[in-house]
Protein backbone atom coordinates (compact mmCIF):
# COMPACT_ATOMS: atom_id res chain seq x y z
CA UNK A 1 0.00 0.00 0.00
CA UNK A 2 2.82 2.38 0.88
CA UNK A 3 4.57 1.36 -2.31
CA UNK A 4 1.47 2.05 -4.39
CA UNK A 5 1.10 5.41 -2.67
CA UNK A 6 4.60 6.53 -3.52
CA UNK A 7 4.39 5.26 -7.07
CA UNK A 8 1.23 7.28 -7.59
CA UNK A 9 2.74 10.30 -5.87
CA UNK A 10 5.84 10.03 -8.02
CA UNK A 11 3.76 10.10 -11.22
CA UNK A 12 2.08 13.31 -10.07
CA UNK A 13 5.44 14.78 -9.11
CA UNK A 14 6.82 14.09 -12.57
CA UNK A 15 3.79 15.72 -14.13
CA UNK A 16 4.26 18.82 -11.93
CA UNK A 17 8.00 18.98 -12.58
CA UNK A 18 7.27 19.43 -16.26
CA UNK A 19 6.69 23.09 -15.37
CA UNK A 20 9.68 23.98 -13.20
CA UNK A 21 8.96 27.70 -12.80
CA UNK A 22 5.44 27.07 -11.49
CA UNK A 23 6.80 24.30 -9.34
CA UNK A 24 9.35 26.45 -7.49
CA UNK A 25 7.05 29.46 -7.32
CA UNK A 26 4.35 27.36 -5.69
CA UNK A 27 6.88 25.82 -3.30
CA UNK A 28 7.98 29.26 -2.11
CA UNK A 29 4.47 30.67 -1.89
CA UNK A 30 3.08 27.65 -0.08
CA UNK A 31 5.86 28.20 2.43
CA UNK A 32 4.74 31.83 2.75
CA UNK A 33 1.18 30.77 3.53
CA UNK A 34 2.40 28.45 6.28
CA UNK A 35 4.75 31.14 7.57
CA UNK A 36 1.85 33.50 8.33
CA UNK A 37 0.83 31.23 11.24
CA UNK A 38 4.35 31.46 12.58
CA UNK A 39 4.38 35.21 12.02
CA UNK A 40 1.23 35.56 14.12
CA UNK A 41 2.93 33.84 17.05
CA UNK A 42 5.98 36.08 16.68
CA UNK A 43 3.83 39.22 16.54
CA UNK A 44 1.93 38.10 19.64
CA UNK A 45 5.22 37.66 21.48
CA UNK A 46 6.44 41.01 20.25
CA UNK A 47 3.75 42.33 22.61
CA UNK A 48 4.11 39.99 25.58
CA UNK A 49 6.64 37.64 27.09
CA UNK A 50 4.14 35.04 28.17
CA UNK A 51 0.82 33.74 26.87
CA UNK A 52 -1.31 31.96 29.48
CA UNK A 53 1.89 31.23 31.39
CA UNK A 54 3.80 29.85 28.40
CA UNK A 55 6.95 31.45 27.01
CA UNK A 56 7.63 32.17 23.34
CA UNK A 57 9.95 29.13 23.07
CA UNK A 58 7.36 26.88 24.67
CA UNK A 59 4.64 28.08 22.30
CA UNK A 60 6.96 27.62 19.33
CA UNK A 61 7.68 24.10 20.59
CA UNK A 62 3.94 23.36 20.66
CA UNK A 63 3.51 25.02 17.26
CA UNK A 64 6.29 22.89 15.75
CA UNK A 65 5.05 19.72 17.41
CA UNK A 66 1.55 20.26 16.00
CA UNK A 67 2.66 21.53 12.61
CA UNK A 68 5.09 18.74 11.81
CA UNK A 69 2.43 15.98 11.73
CA UNK A 70 -0.15 18.41 10.34
CA UNK A 71 1.97 19.52 7.38
CA UNK A 72 2.93 15.91 6.68
CA UNK A 73 -0.77 15.08 6.48
CA UNK A 74 -1.39 18.21 4.44
CA UNK A 75 1.23 16.93 2.00
CA UNK A 76 0.16 13.30 1.89
CA UNK A 77 -3.55 12.94 2.62
CA UNK A 78 -5.23 16.36 2.54
CA UNK A 79 -6.75 15.69 -0.88
CA UNK A 80 -9.19 13.38 0.91
CA UNK A 81 -11.29 16.46 1.57
CA UNK A 82 -12.00 16.76 -2.15
CA UNK A 83 -14.50 13.89 -2.01
CA UNK A 84 -17.51 16.18 -2.46
CA UNK A 85 -15.80 17.86 -5.44
CA UNK A 86 -15.29 14.43 -7.01
CA UNK A 87 -18.89 13.44 -6.30
CA UNK A 88 -20.19 16.61 -7.93
CA UNK A 89 -17.92 16.25 -10.96
CA UNK A 90 -18.83 12.57 -11.25
CA UNK A 91 -15.15 11.62 -11.09
CA UNK A 92 -15.45 9.47 -7.98
CA UNK A 93 -16.70 6.55 -10.09
CA UNK A 94 -13.36 6.25 -11.81
CA UNK A 95 -11.57 5.77 -8.49
CA UNK A 96 -13.93 2.94 -7.69
CA UNK A 97 -13.23 0.91 -10.80
CA UNK A 98 -9.50 0.68 -10.21
CA UNK A 99 -7.86 -2.14 -8.27
CA UNK A 100 -6.69 -0.02 -5.36
CA UNK A 101 -8.51 1.34 -2.36
CA UNK A 102 -10.48 4.52 -3.00
CA UNK A 103 -8.87 6.05 0.10
CA UNK A 104 -5.39 5.53 -1.23
CA UNK A 105 -6.22 6.93 -4.65
CA UNK A 106 -8.06 9.96 -3.30
CA UNK A 107 -5.28 10.72 -0.83
CA UNK A 108 -2.70 10.73 -3.57
CA UNK A 109 -4.83 12.37 -6.26
CA UNK A 110 -3.08 15.52 -7.49
CA UNK A 111 -0.28 14.97 -5.00
CA UNK A 112 1.96 18.01 -5.12
CA UNK A 113 5.40 18.04 -3.53
CA UNK A 114 5.28 21.84 -3.45
CA UNK A 115 3.80 21.50 0.03
CA UNK A 116 6.94 19.79 1.31
CA UNK A 117 8.46 23.16 2.20
CA UNK A 118 5.90 23.53 4.97
CA UNK A 119 7.04 20.27 6.53
CA UNK A 120 10.61 21.51 6.55
CA UNK A 121 9.53 24.80 8.10
CA UNK A 122 7.64 23.02 10.87
CA UNK A 123 10.57 20.72 11.56
CA UNK A 124 13.00 23.64 11.71
CA UNK A 125 10.83 25.50 14.24
CA UNK A 126 10.47 22.34 16.36
CA UNK A 127 14.20 21.62 16.37
CA UNK A 128 15.01 25.26 17.12
CA UNK A 129 12.55 25.34 20.03
CA UNK A 130 13.87 22.07 21.47
CA UNK A 131 17.41 23.45 21.29
CA UNK A 132 16.40 26.79 22.83
CA UNK A 133 14.44 25.28 25.71
CA UNK A 134 17.12 23.29 27.55
CA UNK A 135 14.83 20.28 27.98
CA UNK A 136 15.42 17.12 29.99
CA UNK A 137 17.10 14.81 27.42
CA UNK A 138 15.52 11.83 29.14
CA UNK A 139 12.12 13.02 27.95
CA UNK A 140 12.93 13.61 24.29
CA UNK A 141 11.98 10.03 23.38
CA UNK A 142 8.45 11.39 23.43
CA UNK A 143 9.10 13.54 20.32
CA UNK A 144 8.91 10.74 17.74
CA UNK A 145 6.03 9.17 19.65
CA UNK A 146 3.99 12.37 19.63
CA UNK A 147 4.78 13.02 15.98
CA UNK A 148 3.50 9.56 15.09
CA UNK A 149 0.45 10.09 17.30
CA UNK A 150 -0.22 13.41 15.60
CA UNK A 151 0.11 11.82 12.17
CA UNK A 152 -2.49 9.20 13.04
CA UNK A 153 -4.84 11.78 14.58
CA UNK A 154 -4.68 14.25 11.70
CA UNK A 155 -4.90 11.46 9.10
CA UNK A 156 -7.99 10.17 10.90
CA UNK A 157 -9.44 13.68 10.93
CA UNK A 158 -8.98 14.03 7.19
CA UNK A 159 -10.45 10.59 6.66
CA UNK A 160 -13.46 11.57 8.76
CA UNK A 161 -13.66 14.80 6.76
CA UNK A 162 -13.69 12.84 3.52
CA UNK A 163 -16.23 10.35 4.87
CA UNK A 164 -18.49 13.19 6.04
CA UNK A 165 -18.45 14.66 2.55
CA UNK A 166 -20.27 11.61 1.18
CA UNK A 167 -23.21 12.99 3.17
CA UNK A 168 -22.34 16.71 3.01
CA UNK A 169 -21.90 17.05 -0.73
CA UNK A 170 -23.40 20.52 -0.69
CA UNK A 171 -21.51 21.84 2.31
CA UNK A 172 -17.95 20.59 2.02
CA UNK A 173 -16.52 23.61 3.84
CA UNK A 174 -17.81 22.35 7.21
CA UNK A 175 -15.01 19.83 7.46
CA UNK A 176 -12.37 22.59 7.33
CA UNK A 177 -13.45 23.57 10.82
CA UNK A 178 -12.14 20.21 12.02
CA UNK A 179 -9.06 19.67 9.86
CA UNK A 180 -7.59 23.16 9.53
CA UNK A 181 -9.40 24.14 12.72
CA UNK A 182 -7.65 21.25 14.49
CA UNK A 183 -4.32 22.66 13.41
CA UNK A 184 -5.26 26.20 14.42
CA UNK A 185 -6.28 24.92 17.87
CA UNK A 186 -3.16 22.85 18.53
CA UNK A 187 -0.71 25.60 17.56
CA UNK A 188 -1.23 27.24 20.96
CA UNK A 189 -1.10 25.92 24.52
CA UNK A 190 -4.56 24.59 25.31
CA UNK A 191 -4.31 26.65 28.50
CA UNK A 192 -5.60 29.66 26.53
CA UNK A 193 -8.93 27.98 25.70
CA UNK A 194 -12.06 27.52 27.77
CA UNK A 195 -12.32 24.48 30.04
CA UNK A 196 -15.23 22.92 28.12
CA UNK A 197 -13.48 23.26 24.79
CA UNK A 198 -10.37 21.59 26.21
CA UNK A 199 -12.48 18.79 27.69
CA UNK A 200 -14.02 18.31 24.25
CA UNK A 201 -10.67 18.04 22.47
CA UNK A 202 -9.36 15.69 25.17
CA UNK A 203 -12.18 13.22 25.62
CA UNK A 204 -14.22 13.51 22.40
CA UNK A 205 -11.97 14.57 19.54
CA UNK A 206 -8.53 13.71 20.95
CA UNK A 207 -6.62 16.69 19.54
CA UNK A 208 -5.05 17.25 22.97
CA UNK A 209 -2.89 14.19 22.37
CA UNK A 210 -1.26 15.65 19.26
CA UNK A 211 1.07 17.96 21.16
CA UNK A 212 -0.53 19.23 24.37
CA UNK A 213 -0.57 16.23 26.72
CA UNK A 214 2.72 14.70 25.49
CA UNK A 215 4.17 18.22 25.11
CA UNK A 216 3.56 18.95 28.78
CA UNK A 217 5.59 15.86 29.59
CA UNK A 218 8.47 16.96 27.35
CA UNK A 219 8.35 20.48 28.78
CA UNK A 220 8.18 19.07 32.31
CA UNK A 221 5.10 21.09 33.19
CA UNK A 222 1.92 20.29 35.05
CA UNK A 223 -1.42 20.60 33.25
CA UNK A 224 -3.08 23.92 34.19
CA UNK A 225 -6.39 22.05 33.95
CA UNK A 226 -5.14 19.49 36.46
CA UNK A 227 -5.38 16.27 34.46
CA UNK A 228 -3.36 13.42 36.05
CA UNK A 229 0.16 12.61 34.90
CA UNK A 230 -0.72 9.34 33.13
CA UNK A 231 -2.80 11.31 30.59
CA UNK A 232 0.48 12.48 29.01
CA UNK A 233 1.06 8.96 27.72
CA UNK A 234 -2.41 8.14 26.39
CA UNK A 235 -1.82 9.43 22.86
CA UNK A 236 -0.90 6.00 21.48
CA UNK A 237 -4.24 4.74 22.84
CA UNK A 238 -6.44 7.62 21.72
CA UNK A 239 -5.00 7.87 18.19
CA UNK A 240 -5.71 4.27 17.10
CA UNK A 241 -9.21 4.53 18.58
CA UNK A 242 -9.88 7.58 16.42
CA UNK A 243 -8.30 5.83 13.43
CA UNK A 244 -10.67 2.90 13.86
CA UNK A 245 -13.64 5.22 14.00
CA UNK A 246 -12.41 7.02 10.88
CA UNK A 247 -11.94 3.76 9.00
CA UNK A 248 -15.47 2.64 9.85
CA UNK A 249 -16.89 6.01 8.83
CA UNK A 250 -15.01 5.87 5.54
CA UNK A 251 -16.37 2.40 4.77
CA UNK A 252 -19.88 3.57 5.50
CA UNK A 253 -19.34 6.59 3.26
CA UNK A 254 -18.17 4.52 0.29
CA UNK A 255 -20.93 1.93 0.77
CA UNK A 256 -23.58 4.61 0.84
CA UNK A 257 -22.19 6.48 -2.10
CA UNK A 258 -24.93 7.32 -4.61
CA UNK A 259 -23.31 7.72 -7.93
CA UNK A 260 -25.17 10.41 -9.81
CA UNK A 261 -25.38 11.39 -13.43
CA UNK A 262 -25.71 9.13 -16.37
Amino acid sequence: MVRTYFLLAWTWTRAAAAYPVSFWLMTVLSLAVAATDLAVILVVFANTTSLAGFSREEVLFLYGAASLPFTLCDLFVSNLDRVSRHIKDGTLDTFLIRPAGAWLQLATDRFTPTRAGRVVQAAVVLVWAVAALDLDPGRLWMLPVMTATGLVIFTSLWTLAGAAQFALTDAPEVVNAFTYGGHQLTQYPLAIYGRDLVRGVTYVLPLAFVNWQPGLYVLGRADPFGTPEFMRFLGPVAAPALALLAALAWRQGVRHYRSTGS
Binding site: V44, T48, L51, A177, G181, L185, I192, L197
Partner: peptide, 15 residues
Protein backbone atom coordinates in the same frame (compact mmCIF):
# COMPACT_ATOMS: atom_id res chain seq x y z
CA UNK B 1 -12.17 29.89 13.61
CA UNK B 2 -13.54 33.02 15.23
CA UNK B 3 -13.79 31.24 18.57
CA UNK B 4 -10.29 29.77 18.29
CA UNK B 5 -8.78 33.15 17.33
CA UNK B 6 -10.72 34.93 20.05
CA UNK B 7 -9.02 32.82 22.72
CA UNK B 8 -5.60 33.88 21.42
CA UNK B 9 -6.59 37.55 21.63
CA UNK B 10 -8.12 37.04 25.08
CA UNK B 11 -4.89 35.46 26.33
CA UNK B 12 -2.88 38.32 24.84
CA UNK B 13 -5.15 41.04 26.25
CA UNK B 14 -5.13 39.38 29.65
CA UNK B 15 -1.35 39.64 29.56
Amino acid sequence: FGILRAYILIALWQA
